[in-house]
Design a protein around this nucleic acid. Sequence first.
DNA 1: ACTTGACTTTACGTAAACGTCAAGGTAAAA
DNA 2: TTTTACCTTGACGTTTACGTAAAGTCAAGT
Lengths: 135, 135
Amino acid sequence: MTQSNQTFSIGEIAREFELTPRSIRFYEEQGLIHPSREGMTRVYSHKDKVRLKLILRGKRLGFSLAEIRNLFDLYDTNPNSAEQLKTLLHLTKTKREVLQLQLNDINMLMAELNDVEARCKEELDALTSEQRGTK
Amino acid sequence: MTQSNQTFSIGEIAREFELTPRSIRFYEEQGLIHPSREGMTRVYSHKDKVRLKLILRGKRLGFSLAEIRNLFDLYDTNPNSAEQLKTLLHLTKTKREVLQLQLNDINMLMAELNDVEARCKEELDALTSEQRGTK
DNA sequence: ACTTGACTTTACGTAAACGTCAAGGTAAAA
DNA sequence: TTTTACCTTGACGTTTACGTAAAGTCAAGT
């Protein structure tokens, strides 16, 4: 089996993910990650890194830390009850709808950006050639 | 020319966009919209509606009100100077990169959701058929 | 005349996601 | 041994995007 038992300090993690230690501790305080300890100091494993990657992705997509925590909780609780599976299915459905809306927004914005850009370039061309003419 | 000179009260606008009047006034306070007045009361035109639509889209995409305001300012200032056009081009480029990242995130998340959903359904099937067996 | 309803401003409150000291513990390097 | 570089927990400060009274204006309805 492929397993990495390498561990990391909070500083190393902070540099790797371009976060402050404060943020990482805050995520733990909010129940998003559960690093183990050696005495007082936090020790991060590969699993914790995976969680952090997911957290950051969620944040980029506009999820709140509380929402991310809920998703983690659902994913973590061994999904054996039919009830839990159903709520999970429902959650994925609504999230998918939100994401689809975001996709639509992005496509519309991209189209507008293309528009703006094209007009900008036209204007620029016009300006520069006019300047050549009046030189 | 197609022009609608219809005007709207803040309450009408609020209902139409599913916002509170408070939010709409706040957007004005932040310089995002500039409705005209009749005496004291705000009067909203079609142009203001367009702005609001853009504001909401921006928000869905995770832009702050300040960022949206900057974009509006750039778009509003008559784009005649070459300098302004260049900065606008640069802005569209970086925004496009951010959006591309969001697209990647969404795609990855969608794939994972598909995964989760499939496994959920499998589990559910297993559970229900098992229940049929033990009945 | 009075109430209702929609609008106004002013101003304080709030939740989220950290930033920023403060004050101290530990461990290795100089 | 003292400095240096991390780590720890508190605890208060900050920004964003509003919510939520409080108190007043104004036109319309009864």
